[in-house]
Amino acid sequence: MTEQSTLEPLWTDRLELGEGIRQVAGRIVLTDILAGRLLAAPGDPSGALEVLAELPEPLGAVAPVAGRDGHWIAAAGTGVALLGPDGGTEWLARPVEGGEVRRRMNDGTADPQGRFWAGSMAYDAVPNAGALFRVDHDGSVHRVLEGITVPNGPAFTADGTALYLADSARGVIRRYPVDPESGELGAPEVFVTVGEGSPDGMAVDADGALWCAVWGAGAVHRYLPDGSLDRVLAVPASQPAGVCLGGDDGRCLYVTSARTGLASPGPLDGAVFTARVGTPGLAVAAYQPR
C-alpha cells in the first residue's frame, strides 16, 4: 500500500468552518458549521460541493438515520434535530437554548450501538460552558458531561466500549470507558495532551489508532492505542478541523479546514484535503431510532 506524505486539496470550495466529515453510502459528506450547510462530494474532483441541506443556524455534525435514506440526525443550533430529504426539520430537544451564555452545538457522531453523541460550546468559548449529550434510541436527549470548554470528536472504538473526546481549548484528549448496553460513561483517563495547537475532529482506524486534526498547527496526528504519537501529516492550511477515512478501500484520509478567525486566509485555508494511508477506517455508524 503506497502512502502519501502530503495532503492534496479537493474540490473548489473554501469553507468558513468545515467539520463533521464522514463517508456515508460511499459518498463523503461534511458540514460548514457557521453557514448551516450540509454538503456532499461532487462526482468531479475539480467541481464544487453539493448542498444537501441548509439551516438558518449553525450545523455542527450529522449521522445517517438507519433504514431511512436521505434522513439525518443533526447537532444543530441549540439542540438536536432530525433532517428529512425534503428539507423538513423535527427538533428532538434544544438543551442549550437560553441562559446567560450564548451557546451552540458542535461536533457529533453515532456510536456502534446506534446512539448519537454531540457536544455544545459557547460562541466565545467561555471556560467550562460546554457539555456532551447522548441521544438514545427513543429520541431522548441526555446531558452526560459538563465542565468542558470546546468538546470535539467524539470518536468511538470499533466495539463502542471506549469514547475519545477532545477538550480543544485545554489541548487534551480523554478516553472514557462506555457501557455498550446503557451508554453510561466511566471515569476518564487522559489519552494525550497536544503541545502545539488544539485537538479537533477525530476518527479511529481499523488498527484502533486515533487520527486527529490539530487546529492551529497545520497538522494531522495519528496516535496508537497506547497514546504514543505514530505519525504527523502536514496540512497546507493552518486550521485543520475534521478527519475521516473513506474511499473505495477505506484508505483515503480526508481533512477539512477553516477560514474563520484568520485575518489573511491563504488560498488553501478552508479547503478539504486528501491523502492515501495504509490502514483503513471503520464504517460510519448510523443513528438507530426505536
Score class of each variant (00 low, 15 high):
99 G>F: 12
92 L>M: 00
109 T>Q: 11
131 A>C: 13
146 E>M: 00
65 V>W: 12
89 T>S: 06
102 R>T: 12
147 G>A: 00
136 D>L: 01
112 P>T: 09
144 V>L: 14
85 P>C: 13
90 E>M: 04
96 V>T: 14
123 Y>I: 10
79 G>R: 13
127 P>W: 10
137 H>V: 01
132 L>D: 07
77 G>Y: 06
100 E>Y: 02
66 A>T: 04
88 G>K: 00
119 G>R: 03
99 G>S: 12
66 A>P: 13
148 I>A: 01
109 T>A: 05
158 A>K: 11
135 V>A: 02
96 V>A: 08
104 R>H: 08
65 V>E: 14
110 A>K: 05
84 G>F: 05
153 G>V: 06
98 G>S: 12
99 G>I: 04
153 G>T: 04
148 I>C: 12
70 G>K: 00
105 M>V: 03
84 G>P: 03
69 D>L: 15
110 A>P: 01
84 G>H: 11
155 A>T: 06
116 F>C: 15
137 H>P: 08
139 G>Y: 07
156 F>A: 00
74 A>H: 03
67 G>N: 06
68 R>F: 08
126 V>R: 14
84 G>V: 15
117 W>C: 04
112 P>I: 11
140 S>F: 09
128 N>C: 04
135 V>Y: 07
69 D>E: 14
122 A>I: 12
124 D>V: 08
110 A>C: 15
88 G>Y: 05
139 G>S: 05
122 A>N: 06
142 H>A: 15
143 R>G: 03
146 E>V: 13
66 A>K: 03
138 D>F: 12
105 M>G: 15
99 G>C: 06
65 V>L: 10
121 M>I: 14
140 S>M: 08
153 G>A: 12
150 V>P: 01
117 W>L: 10
143 R>S: 03
94 R>H: 07
105 M>I: 08
68 R>L: 12
114 G>D: 15
93 A>P: 06
71 H>P: 00
64 P>F: 01
84 G>T: 14
94 R>W: 04
63 A>D: 15
122 A>H: 12
101 V>Y: 05
97 E>L: 11
88 G>T: 13
136 D>A: 10
89 T>H: 08
89 T>I: 15
97 E>Q: 02
102 R>H: 05
149 T>Q: 13
128 N>F: 06
129 A>W: 01
79 G>S: 11
101 V>D: 07
102 R>W: 01
129 A>R: 09
146 E>W: 10
140 S>I: 05
145 L>H: 09
122 A>Q: 09
89 T>Q: 09
109 T>R: 06
83 L>F: 14
89 T>N: 00
72 W>T: 12
127 P>R: 03
117 W>G: 14
152 N>M: 10
142 H>F: 02
92 L>W: 07
141 V>C: 08
137 H>K: 00
134 R>G: 05
91 W>E: 08
72 W>R: 05
152 N>L: 02
102 R>Q: 11
83 L>H: 07
103 R>F: 02
71 H>R: 09
128 N>L: 06
63 A>T: 09
73 I>F: 03
149 T>P: 06
79 G>A: 09
67 G>W: 10
91 W>M: 02
87 G>E: 09
141 V>W: 07
80 V>M: 07
147 G>H: 01
118 A>W: 09
140 S>C: 01
106 N>D: 10
70 G>P: 05
126 V>M: 08
143 R>V: 00
68 R>M: 05
158 A>L: 13
112 P>W: 15
97 E>K: 14
72 W>E: 03
95 P>D: 11
87 G>Y: 08
117 W>D: 14
88 G>H: 03
